[in-house]
Design a protein around this nucleic acid. Structure first.
Lengths: 211, 211
DNA sequence: GTCTATAGCTGGATAGAC
DNA sequence: GTCTATCCAGCTATAGAC
């Protein structure tokens, strides 16, 4: 019930500059620092143009989010065919700007319903792709652990990459080396060619599953 | 370089009402919804009183944070002597309002240096206490896994509890049951009396460590 | 498409009476 | 300690000239 207006060209130079400026402001100073004037100033454009291209600030945020989301989904599609898919998934999730931006949008989502909804549908798609990668990777390597199911791993990967990013931002690094090498060890399991593995019932942690 | 002023009584009824109102606003609508007038209205107080008790909005946020932080540290101290310390640690970290509030302060910290610093020092203390609990728990149960060190576990626990809370807020639940039972399984290891365990070199996942 | 100008509001913060 | 009154900055959004 909101949009009786002619859509603006999506590949306008100004429009993109405004999106870039918004993105940069969000990462550097947080979403609360985003305002018509600041965005326009950073983009070298006139403040009124924000409302020409995006009807409201909410739509500006949504446009920034969608652009980033599409880029991430594209990267995730790349992970599907990468040499080491699981490592690729981890790296996409761990990208610093991705993590920082996700945090900002999560905070925004807490009190803007439109953004909450968009974030939820995007996350679902993002995770579905990850799950695809995982199902294939686990299958290829003959790993079948009732506890570390694909959907559980998706939650673990996303949660861990995000919290490592938050810690870094706060300047907390205790335990990070251990966690990183833990993850690295885990990922390395999937870089071993299948022929070299002998088990029919291996587990993610590299030990025989208990009965 | 900021505080030449007489401190206000810490157990004033009005002061506490203002803190409660701020807390509630943050949880319900996000930190951006916190303003002098809204806080005062919710607390049933005069807007000017906000500046009487707290010189700036930043100090108001800090006071809310410190009050919550102290409460959490106290709960964590309780975990130190609980029957099942590890489970207690997990439960303190998973408390819904704790997680929601932490998210808000993380977002705030992104662009307010005073809050970033406070959050960092609090987190350090909080994690140190968790690590104490873990060192003792792992020792008592004779668990010695090079990969799952206490400080790594602290990072894992905090990260996971936070991301589960975020997911819930977004309405994402896929994989949560699996993750929760994974954690539950892990915690149950620490509820087994030590005598019933046979290994001298057990691991967190319940299997023999690889060589 | 881009600009100026401005309406209309809400915000943080202070001065000073009571 | 509590209140009124107020200053001024910043914000979203729109109208309308170019």
């Amino acid at each position: 019930m909101t949009a009786p207006r002619a859509p603006r060209s999506e590949d306008s130079k100004t429009r993109n500059a405004l999106l870039d400026a918004t993105l940069q402001l969000m990462v550097e100073e947080g979403y609360a620092a985003v305002s018509t004037r600041k965005v326009a100033a950073k983009a070298g454009a006139n403040p009124a143009l924000v409302y020409y291209y995006f009807r409201t600030m909410d739509e500006l945020f949504l446009a920034v989010f969608r652009r980033g989301a599409e880029a991430n989904l594209k990267r995730m599609r790349g992970a599907l065919v990468a040499e080491h898919p699981l490592r690729a998934v981890w790296e996409v999730s761990s990208e610093p700007t991705h993590a920082a931006l996700t945090m900002e949008f999560i905070a925004l989502a807490n009190h803007r319903e439109t953004i909450r909804a968009e974030l939820a549908t995007y996350s679902t798609r993002f995770r579905q792709m990850q799950e695809e990668v995982l199902v294939r990777a686990l299958d290829t390597h003959g790993i079948d652990d009732d506890r570390f199911t694909p959907s559980a791993l998706v939650v673990l990967i996303g949660g861990l990459s995000r919290s490592l990013a938050v810690d870094r931002m706060l300047g907390l690094t205790a335990g990070h080396d251990e966690v990183r090498s833990l993850i690295d060890e885990c990922l390395r399991h999937f870089e071993v060619p299948v022929e070299q593995k002998n088990s029919t019932r291996a587990t993610l942690t590299g030990e025989e599953a208990p009965d």
